[in-house]
Design a protein around this nucleic acid. Structure first.
Lengths: 129, 129, 129, 129
DNA sequence: GTGGTCTAGACCACG
DNA sequence: GTGGTCTAGACCACC
């Protein structure tokens, strides 16, 4: 399990952490019930403050992706528990459109973009998963 | 040319405006040299603060998408000029990955995601463009 | 006598246990002098840490609801003993207000809330008690 | 509009603030679109840290009760926006049961409890509202 | 002017 | 051991 943050990134650190954990869960590298590193340890590893990681974990819990039990750490929530946090399809579409638009404006041809998408989808859905 | 903002959207307003203009340019609805509405007019149309629009235009200029001439408004920059604004391939990839990850976590099957991508790419690249 | 805990509940486990025992006593299912299960047994039954149950019993003793005698387990305290544990009327009111406020914000009409209250009061006071 | 916190209360301060604001909204003392005090001002008024209030506001936004716009403060969300944050009926029932149980154990007779409930419901639903 | 994020460090609560 | 809360104070982002 590998998480990294980039202080040059415009996104706040806690959001970067959230994004990475979301991705690990979506890719199946963190399965249901798997324990996440203690906040203090992850904070030390990344060289950031404890509260920053605590915020990321708390928000992910609010999203339904993590289950945090005081005194016994954070684990990946069961799928059934997750269903609560809904994001509108509209918002998902806007985010996708924004990503593709920027790639197109950067001059990437359609084929290059499509191959990047395919690559990411393979990481998310795998071959047999 | 149509731009709209949504106060319920979590993104800052100036970023929504930037996204919409970027999209119009990428889709070819705003061609090179085309004039954008004056800051005051667009601000009035959208019912937002004048500084908000000014910020959006300024950032788009920094990205190389717009050319702002004091006294003569903003126009879409020529392609050759654009190359200045560098966005790292890494950042583009992260944004794409984030969008796809959220769709996957929302339970969308691979095929649905792929069809959304195809649809957006068609809007960006057209059939023959 | 039945006690259960729910790991998906946001309240700490020891508090869930306290609430259940309080409710059993208030409803008369655990009468004065009745023995509670040994800490080790209840912990095993619920699959939780021994300290968790010990904390619940200890707090209930502080509230005056239980009498714990080293070596002979915990029993429900006599009513006269109970009066010690003071909870301010203010705090009780705040808790009640919080519960009703959340129900109202969830969109429950006044009649539905009132019928839930009546139902709970019947369980607590019975018909003739 | 009056908010107060009590450091002797076991609940964290940010939760007390959330409870008070929830109640003001439910009672109609804060109507849709009404502006809340700036975080710094409320923090100063209550003599607590800025971050504590910011946390309360952020959580209320996540619950769908507030709309926070960076740079222009927090306002009570429109009802239509609220529908997102769902609390299970089970959890609401447990909270209600806990409140009533504690009142009964404190020795309050059924009639006294019922009159407290009626009083609170009147504050929430009013006579004609 | 508004809110958002982060730090360093303290102390508390839970299992 | 775990996570939770709070403080004081800094600096940034948005309108």
């Amino acid at each position: 399990m590998h998480i990294s943050v980039d202080t040059n990134d415009r996104r706040p650190i806690y959001e970067q952490v959230m994004d990475e954990i979301r991705n690990l869960i979506a890719r199946g590298e963190l399965r249901e019930g798997a324990a996440l590193p203690p906040v203090r340890q992850l904070a030390a590893d990344l060289g950031v403050n404890l509260n920053t990681i605590a915020t990321a974990y708390r928000e992910l819990q609010a999203e339904g992706l993590l289950t945090i039990r005081h005194g016994s750490g954070a684990v990946v929530a069961a799928r059934t528990t997750r269903e609560t946090g809904e994001v509108s399809a509209d918002e998902l579409r806007r985010t996708l459109r924004g990503a593709l638009t920027r790639m197109a404006l950067a001059g990437m041809p359609r084929a290059v973009i499509l191959s990047a998408v395919t690559e990411e989808l393979r990481a998310l859905f795998g071959r047999g998963r």
